[in-house]
Amino acid sequence: MPVHRRGFGLVFQDGQLFPHLSVGANIAFGLEMAGMGRAARTARVADLLDMVGLAGLGDRGVTELSGGQRQRVALARSLAPRPRLLALDEPLSSLDANLRARLAVEVRDILHAEGTTGLVVTHDPAEAQVMAHRVLRMSDGHLL
């Protein structure tokens, strides 16, 4: 099945925010693709901004954000269309250690609040312990 019909979300390591769209338009992108009306989109975007702690920043350009803020936008964007499964590919690895520890907790709580199943890939065992219910270790493509 082509990627766009799978209903799986993905948070990229480096965010991959659309540079030509505002924060709000980035988050609304998936909603628009799903055919959601404008009013519903606006409400959902506001909810998500609130959830990731960026309330009121919807009109900002994504280039004006800090690294931590960007990853929050990336998370909100992936969560917006309510994916059946959200894969997070080292979502925090580009951030500094302090922020990483704090965001790991936040991301876990947000996924929990949204009731979304998340699949997190990370190199940091501590991060995995904080974020996950179940931790699987892989080496050379094999589960240990």
Partner: peptide
Amino acid sequence: GLRAAAATLGASP
């Protein structure tokens, strides 16, 4: 990656 991101958000090619 931007195109991939858009595809995971449900955008057709």
